[in-house]
């Protein structure tokens, strides 16, 4: 199975390490022709404004926009901003794969970055049976302000959705790649299979 990581900018390497642990050597995606035989793609954390700029320069914007509508995709932090239908603070363009409204840097700046345990929903419990809490690493993180009824919540932090899913499209505002656990990567690979 071929899984890609968008590698224009950002935290590519920590995702690579997680996927390798799970037996997958991912493809670093920089050009449109690399999308054709991928089972799924991770849009990593980084700076969303930089990624939008580079997606256009490398002629990936429209091919990726098409890819994420139907194929398994997981956006983390900046990646979740790319997937949202509406982006605020400030407004910016996006790939519009998930019917959510997301606010950038919504907890504040780096001094307001934090780590806290998350609460899972029953959908997650069906997939992953453990008592161990999932750790959420939030770095200049965005917040999901609104979500459509066809978007389900996988994880919450203090009653707010921080990881959501519609069909095979996932968005998390926190960084599982910076923790010791591989379980959310396993979940994403199960969608790719």
């Amino acid at each position: 199975m071929k899984v890609g990581i968008l590698a224009l900018q950002g935290a590519v390497q920590p995702h690579e390490e997680k996927l390798k642990k799970l037996g997958i050597t991912p493809i670093q995606v920089r050009y449109p022709e690399q999308l054709s035989d991928l089972a799924g793609i991770i849009l990593p954390g980084g700076e969303s404004t930089t990624m939008i700029h580079l997606l256009k320069l490398n002629k990936l914007w429209f091919p990726l926009k098409e890819f994420v509508q139907t194929k398994p995709t997981w956006g983390i932090c900046a990646g979740s901003i790319l997937l949202a239908k509406t982006v605020t603070h400030p407004f910016q363009e996006s790939l519009e794969a998930l019917d959510i409204t997301i606010e950038r840097n919504a907890y504040g700046r780096q001094n307001e970055s934090f780590i806290d345990n998350l609460s899972e929903t029953s959908d997650w419990k069906k997939f992953f049976k453990t008592d161990k809490a999932i750790e959420g690493v939030f770095i200049r993180a965005p917040r999901i302000k609104q979500l459509a009824s066809n978007v389900k919540i996988i994880f919450k932090h203090k009653e707010e959705a921080v990881m959501v899913q519609k069909d095979k499209c996932l968005a998390s505002t926190f960084h599982p790649e910076l923790t010791d656990s591989t379980c959310i990567h396993e979940y994403f690979l199960s969608l790719c299979n």
Partner: peptide, 17 residues
Amino acid sequence: GIEMKLKTGLAEMLKGG
């Protein structure tokens, strides 16, 4: 520890830039 994870975490996000 934890503080360092947040600090190096932001540096991870700036990679390739």
